[in-house]
Structure formats: structure tokens, C-alpha cells
Design a binder for these strands. Structure first.
Lengths: 196, 196, 196, 196
DNA sequence: GAATAAACGAGACGGTACGTCGTGTCTTCAT
DNA sequence: ATGAAGACACGACGTACCGTCTCGTTTATTC
């Protein structure tokens, strides 16, 4: 009844993921229809429906694949917490600035908003590794006495990325390195140990 | 050629906005088709297309109307900055927790992501007043010596709301009053004057 | 309640009839919408609906007007029945051959097919005078001993025009003067007195 | 790009043709919309548009199908030319008198008037066989010395059917068996050999 | 190495909604 | 107070995709 993954055609799978990302970059989310993906990938529609239940699942898998191809996520630890956070925050700003990457993020966000279970997958497979990497760096900072003991590290992570997403999502202002630096400075001030 | 606003039928306009919000609350964003809105409002489709170019524009106008009906946005100023911020942040959390209000926010966010110009309108007409109210309260706090002089107030505002949106959007954790309080505590720590 | 013919604006009436015939000639029956006529005539749609119930009624009135403008219909009577019939039949062929006149006839025929009461009006106001003119000529021919006594003159008239309409309507062959002459010859043979 | 006839669903095709004829008979040509046909046939609109470019083409195909189902068209040849012609002419009168058949003819005629190429198809696929059958009978009559040598048989055929169509189309008088007989008598008189 | 069963490309299918057009009625505004 | 201008509710248009469903045609085991 169900499809047998062992017999799956890897060539078709790759063609579909590539086509999906390409269309997303070229013509935007509006033209990202299953039919368009199938046509672009030179694949029957059924082959898509056989392996993915939702359009968003294709994008998710494409992104997970792309992430797996990249090396493991890890923050630098130069000893200077603020500097290391600036690095990762500036990288995130750059990502939002790249039209192609931004289009992908926009698409997956839309899908996420409309589909609870997809949202969970995106969170666990795409986001969590990135956020955990920052959390790890903060933990190291706490061990080094640069972070107050009582601070909830999850909240601290969101204190960093929240404003960035907010500004990107709601266009409340320019997304620049300066902005990233400013947020880092505020966040570091928020979590540093009390002065005597 | 273009429609003449002076001859617009106000009754139809209200019926459409009401129908749109009702459907959004009842059946979710998926069933929010122009046809459904027209049918529910007892209105011809053309009457919708005559006055709104996008589906999102209807929701925006409905929300703006609703906001205008509500009293002016203003934060309390009890003198205790942290307490006042907790009030507004908890209110926002409550808003995200309300399924009906959340559905509206979700819908308008999706539309915003897919349409630049709509995003700008949402920002200016819906968001800005709310953010500015918080900004005003922060400014008052600065005048009262509770906020460090160099702090960029826009960044400070986003330090508050960013994490909330982040958690709602990406489901990175539970959205509770405790969370709101935690973020307020961190943000207040971030912006308070240096101890001597 | 009902419109008062006395207050009718003759200028508008003429503009509408002219516009209708013009559009029919220019763009064909497909573009002959009430809206197009109103726009072309520089007239409100209501002004049309006030005075005509159906689109076909406009065309009918336009044609009746045009016919009234032309001199009274009457066949020549040269004494040579066949020759006189050839004249009128060739004229009819010419009418069908003229693209503009043919378009009008086509349009009124379509309307006629879909509307019984309009069909009756067309018959009585447009067709009957023409057919009666031929009938009169045949009666004169009978008086002159060129037509057999028992012949039903209405049938004889249709023996002449029927084939012409048939060929025009169903495109069963070329509509030429020769064809007209051939039909006349046959018809005359059909109705002439028996040889001794 | 174009549809592949080999993969066509015959069940759907029949359902569409049946629905079209049924609606035509029940509610008349005015209600014969593509949407109504699709709904009645339990078929998607696209399935209709995929295989037929015009509404009239559906009716044509339905009629051609129906005709193919009937036995081959052929006139009786009893030796009595006038009698045989009366038979076929009375049958045609009966067809025009039947409200259901008449509705079909009316519909296809309207479409024919508005679409040249459809008209040609109607002529060749529906009409020609019928007219040719009569022409064949006339030819047999000529061989039997009942028809004058110089007579154009196509003209003779139209001398018979032309008046019938004329009377039906333009409602110039009642369409009865007597009328049919009268026309046959005139036509036979028109084409018979000259008396010595 | 042939048999066979699944996945595949292609695309027809029943549907839903799209955005547009024309209908006939009703309302507004300028003359 | 009439008539142009046009907004309105309605319904059909023809199109785009949806997700399901055959069709042959590769593939790729399994016997």
C-alpha cells in the first residue's frame, strides 16, 4: 500500500528538491505550485504526492538537505562573548539580506504559519540546531563568569534572535550590522553578572 | 475608470469586513476565499475586487477599523517601569493565546510575508501605534532616570516584542506570563543605567 | 411608474440605434452588448433598459427606422414576370453578400430564434412588407394569365425566398446571381399555367 | 500540450453529450451554460473545455452521435416521386413540430449563425447526408424520366427544403402536412419534363 | 536471464476558486 | 426632474491548480 523507500528514485528526489528551491528563488512563492515543481523537475505529479504530503514538506526537506551538506553548526569561542555573538548575529543579518535565502525563509515561514505539525518539524530540524549552538556558547560564557547565574539561557537566546526576526518580519527598520551589534550589546548587558 | 469612493456603499463595506473576520475566526485562513467572503457578506465578488486588490488588504482594513473603534492606545505610567512593561507584555501574550485573535494575526502575517506593500501598511497602521506607545513609556522612563542615556529606544522596544513574536512564530517554547515577565526583567536589566 | 414616451429624448434614441448598428457592423454580434451600446452612444444603461426590454428590440427598431427612411417597397412590373422576380431575387442576394447588411440580418435572426415575440414583430414589421410586395407582383401575374389559378401565392413566395435563406443560413452553396436566376426559373415553371 | 484522444474518458464524453441534449430539451437554449452541462454530467468544466472549443461543438457532436446511432438515411423509392418526396417533407415538418427536436435545431442554428467554421461542420456532417438522400431520389427520378434534363438537382433540393426552413425560421405561416404537400406539388411541377 | 512488481512520466479526471465580464436594477450627482 | 455615470447582486465565463486516478514504460529486484 505504502510506498517503499528502498525503491525510491534518488534522481527524481533531487530533481524535485532542486526545482522547488530554484522556483522559489526565481519567481517567488506565488509560482511555487506542485505542478510547476513537477514540470520543472521533469517528474510526474504523483511522484511528488507519493513522498510528500504538503508543499511545505518539500521545502523543509530541501533545506534540511542543504544544511546537512554544510558543515556542522558551531559558534566560535574566542573568549570574547560579545564578539562571538556579533559574529553569529551579523551572519543572520546577512542571511536575511540575501534575496534568495530570504525568499526561502519567507516561504517556509508562511507554510509554518499555516501548518502546526510542519512548524514543529521546522523548529526541531532547522532552527533548534542553530539556537542550541548559541545556547552552548552562552553556557560556556556562564561557566567563564560572563553570564549571571539566574539567567534562563533560552530566554537569552531569544533576546538575541527575537529582535532580528521581528525587524525582518515586520519591517520595522533596517536590518544592518549596526543593528545586530546594538542588540548584542543590549543582550550582553541584560545577562552579565551584577556589578558589586 | 477607477472606482469613486464617494459612491461607495458603506453597508456592503461593513458586511465584507465583518464576514472576513468572522470566517477567519470560524474556519481559519484556509477557508478565507474571496468567494466565501462575498457569499457570507451577501455581496457580489466584483464589489470586493472593486475596492480591494488583495485578500490581505481586506483583513488589514478590518483590523484598522476595529482598532480605530477601540480607544487610543496608551500604556499606563505607574512610575514602575518594569511593572508597566509587564502589563503590556502580558496583554500581548494573552492576545497570542486567544485562538481568534491569533488566527487574525497569523493571517495578516502570512499576507504580509507575501506582499511587500501590504507589509508596509500593516507596519504603519497597525503596529507602529502599539510600538510607539511602548517607546513613549520608555522615553518617560529615561526622563525619570530609569533608562541609560545611550540606549536606542527602537532597539529596546524590539528587545521586548522580538522574543515574544519569535516564540509565537517559531513555537520555540510556551508563551506564558512567566515568559513575558522574564523577558521584561532581562530587557530592563539591559537598559538600566550603569551602577556606580 | 412606466416611462412616458412624450418625455423621451429623441437625441438619445437615435444615438442608441446608431451605436447598435455601428457596433454590429464593426465588431460583430459578439461585441454587441448593452454596455457597449450605452458606452458608444454616450448614454446611461438605464436609458436603454427604460425603452427596450431586449437587445433584439433595439436592432429591430433600428432596422424599422432605416426601412421607413427608404422609399416604399414595390416591385417593378415590366410585364415580364420572370424578369421582375430576377430583379428582386438578385437584390436579395446582394443584400446577403454585403458583410454589413448580412451581419445585421444574422444578428436579428439569432435574436428571433431565441425570442418568440420578437420573431413575430420581425416578421410583421420587417419581412411582411417585402414578401407582400412580391406576392402583389405574383397576383398581378396571375391576373395577366402567367400564373396558374390554383397556386397558393404565399407558398409561391416562399418557393422563391426559401431557397435563398436556406443557402445563406446553411451555407449549402454559393449565393450568386446565377443561383437567383435558377431559382426564379424553377419557381416560374412551378406556377405557370398548364400547357394544353 | 494538446489533449490525447487515446486517453479520453468515454464515460465522461457520453455524460456530457447526454447532459447537453437533456438541458436543451428541458430548459431551453438560454440555460445551456457550460457550467450547467458540467454540473448535470457530473464532470469538471475543464473536461469540457479540454475537448470542445465552443458550446455549439458539443451539440453538434451530440447530434452527429445520435445520427450515427440511427440507421442510414435513405429515401423510399416507390416509383412515385411526388409521394416519396411528400414522405420526407412531412417527416421534416414533424421534426420542426416536435418541441424537443425543434429546440435542438434552433440551438445549433444559433451557434451556426455566430460561427462560420461550426456552420461548415454542421452542413457537412448533419445536413449533407439528408440533402444528398433527397438528391439521390431526384436523380433516380430523372433516370425514370420524371425530371427534366436541364434541372440543377441541388437547386431542386433547396426548392423543397428552403420553404420549410423559411417558414419555421421566420414564422411566416403554419408548418403543416398540407404545406409540405403543397410545396412538393409546386416543386414537382417545377422540375417535371415539358409537356409536348 | 526472465518474470514481475513497484516506481515512474505523463496527463486526464472531478473539483474549487480565481479574477473578469455582462446583466438588469438601483443610487447619486450634475444640468 | 432628467439622464449620464456607475455601483450593486448575480451568475457564467474560461483558467489554474488541487489531489486522485489511470495509463503505458522503465527499473530492479526476486526466482
Amino acid at each position: 500500500m505504502t510506498a517503499d523507500p528502498a525503491r525510491r528514485n534518488e534522481r527524481s528526489r533531487r530533481a524535485i528538491l532542486t526545482a522547488a528551491l530554484d522556483l522559489l528563488g526565481e519567481t517567488g512563492y506565488a509560482d511555487l505550485t506542485i505542478e510547476a515543481i513537477a514540470a520543472r523537475a521533469g517528474v510526474g505529479k504523483q511522484t511528488i504526492y507519493r513522498w510528500w504530503r504538503k508543499k511545505g514538506a518539500i521545502i523543509l526537506e530541501a533545506l534540511v538537505d542543504a544544511m546537512a551538506a554544510a558543515e556542522a553548526v558551531a559558534l566560535p569561542d574566542t573568549g570574547d562573548l560579545a564578539a562571538d555573538l556579533r559574529t553569529v548575529m551579523r551572519a543572520t543579518v546577512a542571511e536575511f539580506a540575501d534575496p534568495k535565502l530570504s525568499a526561502t525563509t519567507r516561504a517556509i515561514t508562511i507554510e509554518t504559519l499555516g501548518d502546526e505539525s510542519l512548524g514543529v518539524q521546522v523548529r526541531d530540524q532547522l532552527l533548534r540546531p542553530q539556537l542550541d549552538a548559541v545556547k552552548d556558547r552562552l553556557r560556556a560564557g556562564r561557566d567563564a563568569g560572563q553570564v549571571r547565574d539566574g539567567v534562563d539561557l533560552d530566554q537569552a537566546v531569544e533576546l538575541l534572535f527575537g529582535p532580528l526576526y521581528h525587524r525582518w518580519l515586520l519591517r520595522t527598520g533596517p536590518l544592518t550590522d549596526d543593528y545586530a551589534d546594538g542588540i548584542v550589546e543590549l543582550a550582553v548587558a541584560a545577562i552579565r553578572p551584577d556589578r558589586k
